[in-house]
Design a protein around this nucleic acid. Structure first.
Lengths: 127, 127
DNA sequence: CCTATATTTCGTCATATGGCGAACTATAGG
DNA sequence: CCTATAGTTCGCCATATGACGAAATATAGG
């Protein structure tokens, strides 16, 4: 039912950290450990946010060994979820926090994934 | 800031009753008493929902004596709120609850506003 | 197979949200 | 002005949400 879908999508979008996740995925898929690093949240919390976005149909996931990658949903191009993603991204341009996230994401992506996870284990923030 | 605005709009849209309110306004402004009747919620609850929608910029209000009218926001036509309204309405087409609401709203609009408020005072649902 | 480890699930806590009724506010009309 | 009344605000309660750490799961690699 469309009413339920609209509400479910809006609920998924009604959290700042989840919006930041969507923004971080707009230029390509990211590994969970990279999202954890960007948000500086506990792995369990980050995983829950990703699960909520996936449940709402806003992101899709791909498993690669021990690593899990998430990306923005692409399907027909005209689904409610995809329209919502476009609305979100379009309204985020030039937001200072998103710009800062973009910069930090560059740093995160410049680190080897294994090295990033290693640093996270040892409780050090890498960037 | 755009991030805050996106989250605020999504929060305002993340409740079924508030979506039903937006749908009920899509063909013109409505009086609070008419919205109360449609949702079958307490006046205080309905008023709070309308205040949340107004705070988010999704609806505007107009006072006419003791009566207050709400309508969907119209401004530039390309504001985040207006884009959100279009997204919501477009995805609600043919939803059975919205169709039922539309029918009930016809009934409500066929009753004199004073008569509607009178019935509400006496605790009777009119439709 | 055994160990290490990336991610998820579970349990718990603090806070946010949505509901109501009672009290308050503002305005129409006697 | 006094009363009635449409709507809002306030105080309260039950439930939902987001945070964390601990425990569980799944997989790579010795």
């Amino acid at each position: 039912m469309a009413l339920d879908e609209v509400v479910a999508l809006a609920k998924a979008l009604s959290d700042e950290n989840r919006i930041r996740i969507l923004a971080s995925l707009r230029n390509g898929e990211r590994c969970v450990c990279q999202v954890i690093e960007l948000l500086a949240l506990a792995p369990s919390t980050t995983s829950k946010h990703l699960a909520i976005l996936k449940q709402a149909g806003l992101v899709q996931s791909r498993k690669e060994g021990r690593w899990m990658h998430y990306r923005l949903t692409t399907s027909s191009g005209t689904s409610p979820a995809e329209e919502a993603i476009r609305w979100v991204i379009a309204n985020l341009e030039n937001d200072p926090r998103i710009v800062a996230d973009d910069r930090q994401l560059d740093s995160i992506l410049s680190v080897e994934r294994a090295e990033l996870c290693c640093r996270q284990r040892e409780g050090r923030r890498c960037c």
